[in-house]
Amino acid sequence: MSAPEGWNPRIVVFACNWCSYAGADTAGVSRIQHQPHFRMIRVMCSGRIQPGFVLRAFEKGADGVLVSGCHIGDCHYLFGNERAVEQFEKTRAVTRILGLEDERLRLEWISAAEGARFAQVIDQFTERVRALGPSPLAREAR
């Protein structure tokens, strides 16, 4: 289904405080420009990002959700990001049942130094979600 003219995707990014949120700040300090259609929600660890948060975002109208944390092995809390992977898989199982395309939900590891990578991930994800058009759930929400 094609997106209406002038439509912009609504994207929610859940990011851990130590790596990914910091990586977004690094993009800022280096003025690396990227797409503005996402909204960031900070938690301390990606392990905190439970299925309910992501599902609520879709329920309320998100067209895409990005879950992001420290690279494996780099977690500020040792293995929180590995728990994040497991929770991400659970979330994925539900979004499939809901009929959401897999590409609307993404997991990325971005370190505090990777400002350029943060910008790149946002741009790519935005384009991907834009190509998919509005979320089937979002249409109901609106």
Binding site: I41, V43, M44, G47, Q50, G52, K60, R83
Partner: peptide, 28 residues
């Protein structure tokens, strides 16, 4: 880190300062 709050199958754990209600309020 709050991971246990997300993990708890009974929803018995609250991650203070990053509670479910606080995060959900932001989404809403």
């Amino acid at each position: 880190c709050g991971t246990c709050a997300s993990w708890c199958p009974s929803g018995a754990i609250t991650a203070r300062h990053f509670t479910n209600r606080q995060v959900e309020a932001m989404v809403d």
